[in-house]
Design a protein around this nucleic acid. Structure first.
Lengths: 188, 188
DNA sequence: TACGGTGATTGCAGAACCTGTCATCACCGT
DNA sequence: ACGGTGATGACAGGTTCTGCAATCACCGTA
C-alpha cells in the first residue's frame, strides 16, 4: 500500500470512473474503489462525503467562481448577460476535460441516484447565482427567475457541447444557447 | 398488530411526519415509522422505494396530471399559458392540504437529503412538461426552456402560498408568479 | 540525531438503509 | 370446504456511512 503518494482525491476519482464503466455504478462498492486506488474505504470517506460525490469534482469551486464573476460583472451589463459571461469565463476548464466529461455523463445518465445529485448541484448553482444577482441590486422574483433560466441554458449548452461532432467549445454553445433563450423569451 | 386495516400508505405517511417533527428526520429510523403505523420495516419498503419517498405522496400522479393537462390544452393557447393553466387546474388538491404542506416544508428545509429528492421531483416535472410541449409541436430548445421557467414560477408560487398570512389560494399565487415571469422575461 | 507537532491514513465497531427470498395470513369467488 | 390473489411478515445479508482512537509519514527545531 503506497502511503502518501499524493493526489489521493484524483486517484480515487479515476479508480471510481474506471470501475463504474467496467461493472456499473451499483455493482461497485466503495471498498473496491479505495482498494484500486491503493487506499482503504475509510480514507475514501475522509475525502468525499458519500459515494456519489466522487463524480462531482470541482463543482463547488465552479459554483464559487460563477458567483464571484457575476458579482464582479460591469454594472451596465444586463443580469442575463452577466451570468452568461460568467459561464463563458469558466468554460475553459471543461473544454480541457471533454473526454472525461463524456464518460461521466454516460455513468450519470444510467442512474437516477446520480442524476439526483446532479440536480442538487444545479440547484445550488442556481441559488448562488440568485444570491449574486441580489447583491447586484436585482430584486426578487427577477433574481430567482433569471438565475433559473440561466442554469437551464447552461444545461442546454453542456448537452450540445458533449453531443457536438464538430467539437465546438463550450463557450460557443453557451453563446448560442443564450441566443436561443433571448429568442424564446420574446414569445412569452 | 391490526392487519389489513386499510390505508396503509396514509398511516405510514402520518407516522413518518409525526416522528420527523418530534425527533427529526435523521434520528428517526424506518423501523420506528413502521412500528408506529402498526407495521414492519419490510412493509414500509413494499410501499415506498426508500425512506425519503414517504414525504412525497402523490407527486407522481401530480406530474402525470400536469402532463395530461398540458397536452389537452386548446391549440390557440400559448405554451406558457397552457402550463400555467395546467398548474392552476391541479392546485385545489394543495389548497386542501395547506397545513400538511407547512409541516412537510419545515422538514424538507432542514435536510439536504430531502431537498435533493425534491429537486429530483421538480426535474421530473420539468421533463414531463417538456415532453408534453413537444407533442404540442413546440420544438427544442423552446420546449425545454419554457418548461424549466414554468417550474421555477411554480416553485415561486408555492413558496408564496405557504408564506402568505392572508391564506390566498395557490391558484392566486400561480397567477401572480406567471405575471412576474412575463414582466421579467420582457427584460431579457 | 533526537524529538514533538501536524495531518493523513487506517482499523474496528456499529447503526441504519435497502434487497431478496420465502412463508404466512386475510380476503374473495366458487 | 377449497384454491387463488395480494398484502404482510420474518430472516439473512450486503452496503453505505459514522465515530473513535491508533498509527504512520513528514517537517521543523534543538
Amino acid at each position: 500500500m503506497g502511503r502518501w503518494p499524493g493526489g489521493t482525491q484524483e486517484r480515487l476519482q479515476e479508480a471510481a470512473i474506471e470501475l463504474f464503466t467496467e461493472r456499473g455504478y451499483e455493482r461497485t462498492t466503495v471498498a473496491e474503489i479505495a482498494t484500486r486506488a491503493g487506499l482503504t474505504e475509510r480514507t475514501f470517506y475522509n475525502h468525499f462525503a458519500d459515494k456519489r460525490e466522487v463524480l462531482f469534482p470541482g463543482q463547488d469551486s465552479f459554483i464559487a467562481k460563477v458567483r464571484e464573476a457575476v458579482g464582479a460583472a460591469p454594472a451596465e451589463q444586463s443580469p442575463l448577460d452577466a451570468v452568461n459571461a460568467a459561464f463563458i469565463a469558466g468554460s475553459d476548464w471543461f473544454d480541457q476535460r471533454r473526454e472525461a466529461a463524456q464518460r461521466r455523463r454516460h455513468i450519470l445518465d444510467a442512474h437516477t441516484d446520480l442524476r439526483e445529485r446532479e440536480w442538487a448541484k444545479l440547484a445550488a448553482l442556481g441559488e448562488a447565482i440568485t444570491a449574486a444577482l441580489r447583491t447586484r441590486g436585482i430584486p426578487d422574483p427577477a433574481a430567482t427567475l433569471t438565475a433559473a433560466v440561466s442554469v437551464t441554458a447552461y444545461q442546454l449548452a453542456a448537452a450540445r457541447w458533449l453531443a457536438d461532432p464538430q467539437y465546438g467549445t463550450l463557450g460557443h454553445h453557451l453563446h448560442t444557447s443564450f441566443e436561443d433563450l433571448h429568442r424564446t423569451a420574446r414569445s412569452w
